[in-house]
Write a protein that binds this DNA or RNA. Structure first.
Lengths: 173, 173
DNA sequence: TGGTACATGTAACATGTTACATGATTAG
DNA sequence: CTAATCATGTAACATGTTACATGTACCA
C-alpha cells in the first residue's frame, strides 16, 4: 500500500537510514551537516516523519538504548519507497530570499536600512563560503558530497559577486 | 493593535498596493512578474492574506468592478504595518533544491537517473538566464528591479558553472 | 554537583499546495 | 456561439515553525 509518494524530507531521512540505523537526534545532525544548506528541517518534523513512517512500515524502531535513544532502521518497504522517490524527476528549486524583497521594495524602505542589511548579509555569505572551503577536505573522498558542497561554493561566490556589482543607487538607498 | 509582525508574503502584497489599488488577480500577476523568481506565492494564499488583512484593517476592498473585480487599497494602518516590516532585518534565505538531494543521494539512484535530471535541469537554467537577459531592458529604468533581476543572472550563471564543473563520477552516475 | 550534550516528544500555529467549484466578459 | 481569459473563492491537506515540557548521561 504505497500511501502516496514520499515527500523529499521523509525521503532524505530514509536515505540516511540506508547507511545505518539512526535516532531522530542523529538524523537531525546528519541532515544539518549533509543537506542543511539546501534542505532545512527541524527536530519536530523529523520526529513527526519518523512516527508517520513507522506507522506505515517504512522504518522500524529498535531497542531503546541509553537515554531512551531509539534507533530507527529502514525496512524493505522503506527501501522500496525510497527507490520510488529516487526514480522521480526532482522538482525545481525554490528560493525564498527576504533580502531580495527588501531590495525590490527598496524605494519604500527607511534610509540606511537597505545598506545595513546588505552589509550584514554580505558578511554572512563570506563566512559561509569560507566554511565550505574548510569542509571540502572532509568530503574529498565522496564525489557526491563534494558536488553538493561545490554547489554551495558556486552559489556563495555568485552572491558575493552580486553584492559587489550593486550600483550605489541601491547600496546607498 | 499590531496583531503581530507581517509575514513577508503579506508584506509584499502591501508593498504592491502602495503603487496602486489592485485586485487579488492583479497581485498574483504582479508578484509573479516582479518577485516570483525568489518569492513564490499562490492564488489561494493571496486571497487568504487579503481577507485576513481586510479583517485587521490593513487593506480595504473597493467597489466591485467588472466581473466582481474587487480592487484593494492599502490603508494608513496598512502603510504602518508595511513600514514596521520594512524596518526589520530581513532573515536569511532558504533554498530547497531537490536536484541537490538527488546528487547527495547519488549513490542510491538508479543508473542514468542523475545524468538525465542534471541534463534536464541544465536546460531549464539556461532558459531562465536567457529570459532574464530579455527582461533586463524592461526594468532598466528601475535600479531596484534591475538589482533583483541581476541577482537572478548571477545565480543562473553560477548554477550553469556548477553543472559544467561536475566531474564524470557524478554526471555519469 | 553542576553544566553540557544527548534524547524524546507534544501542541499550537503559520504557511504553502492542490483540487474543486462558480461565474462574467471579451474576442473571434 | 464558443473558447480563452478574467475573477473569486473554499476545503482539505501537507509542510514547516516555535514554544513548551521532560528527563538522562557524561564529564570536569
Amino acid at each position: 500500500m504505497p500511501d502516496r509518494p514520499l515527500n523529499a524530507t521523509a525521503a532524505s531521512l530514509l536515505g540516511f537510514l540506508h547507511e545505518r540505523p539512526m535516532t531522530g537526534w542523529d538524523l537531525v545532525a546528519t541532515a544539518e551537516l549533509l543537506i542543511g544548506d539546501f534542505w532545512s528541517l527541524t527536530r519536530s518534523q523529523v520526529y513527526r516523519e519518523l512516527a508517520a513512517m513507522a506507522a506505515s512500515g517504512l522504518v522500524e524502531a529498535g531497542e531503546s538504548g541509553a537515554r531512551d535513544a531509539r534507533p530507527f532502521t529502514v525496512t524493505a518497504a522503506g527501501r522500496a519507497a525510497f527507490a520510488d522517490w529516487a526514480a522521480q524527476e526532482p522538482g525545481p528549486e525554490t528560493i525564498r530570499f527576504p533580502l531580495l524583497l527588501a531590495v525590490g521594495f527598496g524605494r519604500h524602505l527607511p534610509a540606511g536600512r537597505l545598506a545595513a542589511s546588505l552589509a550584514a548579509h554580505r558578511v554572512e555569505h563570506e563566512k559561509r563560503l569560507q566554511r565550505y572551503g574548510e569542509l571540502a577536505a572532509a568530503v574529498s573522498d565522496d564525489p557526491f558530497a563534494t558536488a553538493t558542497l561545490d554547489f554551495g561554493r558556486h552559489y556563495e561566490q555568485a552572491v558575493l559577486g552580486w553584492f559587489d556589482a550593486l550600483p550605489a543607487a541601491v547600496t546607498q538607498a
